[in-house]
Design a protein around this nucleic acid. Structure first.
Length: 442
RNA sequence: UCCUCGGUAGCUCAAUGGUGGAGCAAGCGGCUGUUAACCGCAAGGUUGCAGGUUCGAGUCCUGCCCGGGGAGCCA
């Protein structure tokens, strides 16, 4: 019998809550994930977005007509199942099973569902990303991402930070170093933001401790496992904070994120084959702190051809972070390889009061930040040295002209953090619909 | 932009310059506890595109297109 609109019910129970429903007769609204059969005993695996449950059908349990059709339901057909919940050690995924008494097909899939329960290539899966996110692992990654985003917000909201939204359209290129996406903004050029930081510096002078959280855009033709053209970043900025204070905030944030994910998703992480013990250890404060000069020495000893003044490439970051079992701050880079707004170290003006936080196990940079230059004249010099147009930064210079104070902040990349926590090789699986140099759809 | 690997059935992959195959999916049949079930039958092809070499090209050569991995670039 075809599905009728009057049969429609809003889901009352979800697979995630089955443990509370043992021996109860319940209804689950979902989709057919897979069907297995052993002749007269058939198993329909149903997913509802919160999990996957195995439903058992025998000739006695449902009408003869529904039994006969039950092993012909195509994958991903939408289905409403009714039955009694049973704890069952043989049941995959959730350890519970539903002995069906009835089911209704809401919509039958008439074409073959593209994504089989088998290996596929990355390109094929990415072309079907809108369907791929239904699969078990991708589903878990997106759930963990949501938990991470909430943990970030909770951390700042409960520590006296004010959310300040930064603009997406910007008239200037923050640092003038990155390649930006250009848009036609009426009769003038506008760029998609690559960072909200400069705005947060202004906001910190207004509200004390602030953060912004939104998408950022980079038009670099980067084709690596840690780059997207559109990615999410959280950027706190704190007035009257120095580099040490800045690192304490970063450490507190990352530690809190990891602990929150562990508390809520330990089983999911294990299902993703993430080494949970490594994560538990990594959440313990304090993190390591080394200076740039020490990092260079470590790399030289590891046989890398690198000298003081070079920036780290992806390889160097990987080698460096494999030597640590917890996140490591690398501080005091040479000022020449850093952005114009970085504060010089008062003890050595060749060095910047900056820090990068590198995630262990080869993951690398998830945070970049530091103390900002608060002296107007030094900042003016820096703008000249970087060949930046002073006029577009006049508003930013006002922040120094009117009650300048020491201040610091950082940016944390959400996708790199998700990749690290989930143990994924590539950031493209950490965002629902990734935007890469050569991928704009779906 | 550069380096490197690849493009063969819907998907994942085989195929010494000499008759293009297998597994999975889809189709049909079987099985009362399956775990990406399993077993059987049948079906499935413009070998990325365009040229070239050769008696003969999926295979060798040239160009192009597309993709993977990496580099550069990248708070």
């Amino acid at each position: 019998m075809p599905f009728q609109r009057d049969n429609m019910i809003k889901p009352e129970f979800y697979i995630r809550d089955l443990e509370k429903c043992v021996d109860k007769e319940i209804t689950i609204c979902g989709w057919v994930y897979n069907i297995r059969s052993s002749g007269k005993v058939r198993f329909i695996l149903v997913r509802d977005g919160t999990g996957i449950v195995q439903c058992v059908i025998t000739p006695k349990s449902v009408s003869q007509e529904k039994f006969e059709k039950s092993d012909k339901i195509p994958q991903e057909s939408s289905i409403i199942v009714r039955g009694r919940v049973k704890k069952e050690s043989r049941a995959p995924y959730c350890g519970y099973e539903i002995e069906l008494t009835d089911y209704d097909i809401v919509s039958t899939v008439s074409q073959e569902y593209p994504i089989a329960l088998k290996e596929h290539g990355v390109d094929f899966l990415m072309n079907h990303r809108h369907l791929w996110i239904r699969s078990y692992q991708q589903n878990m990654i997106l759930r963990i991402r949501a938990t991470i985003v909430k943990a970030i917000r909770d951390y700042f909201d409960s520590n006296g930070f004010i959310l300040v939204d930064a603009p997406i359209f910007t008239p200037n290129a923050c640092e003038g170093t990155s390649t930006l996406f250009e848009t036609n903004y009426f009769d003038t050029k506008a760029y998609l933001t690559q960072s909200g930081q400069l705005y947060m510096e202004a906001a910190a002078m207004a509200l004390g401790k602030v953060y912004c959280f939104g998408p950022t855009f980079r038009a670099e033709k980067s084709k690596t496992r840690r780059h997207l053209t559109e990615f999410w970043m959280v950027e706190p900025e704190m007035a009257y904070y120095d580099l040490e204070d800045d690192m304490e905030v970063a450490e507190g944030l990352v530690s809190y994120i990891i602990e929150t994910v562990l508390a809520k998703h330990e089983k999911d992480l294990i299902a993703l084959e993430r080494n949970v013990e490594n994560l538990k250890n990594a959440a313990r404060k304090p993190f390591y702190r080394i200076r740039y000069a020490e990092a260079i020495e470590i790399l030289k000893k590891a046989g890398h051809n690198i000298k003081f003044g070079d920036d780290f490439g992806g390889d160097e970051e990987t080698v460096l972070t494999k030597q640590f079992d917890k996140p490591v701050f690398v501080t005091h880079y040479p000022i020449e390889i850093k952005a114009f707004y970085m504060k010089r170290d008062p003890k050595n003006p060749e060095l910047a009061c900056n820090m990068d936080l590198l995630a262990p196990e080869g993951y690398g940079e998830i945070i970049g930040g530091g103390q900002r230059e608060d002296d107007l004249n030094i900042l003016l010099d820096a703008i000249k040295r970087h060949n930046l147009p002073q006029n577009v930064f006049e508003w930013y210079l006002d922040v120094r002209r009117y009650g300048s104070v020491p201040h610091a902040g950082f940016g944390l990349g959400v996708e790199r953090t998700v990749a690290y926590i989930c143990g994924l090789h590539h950031v493209r699986e950490t965002i629902p619909f990734p935007r890469l140099m050569d991928r704009l759809s779906p």
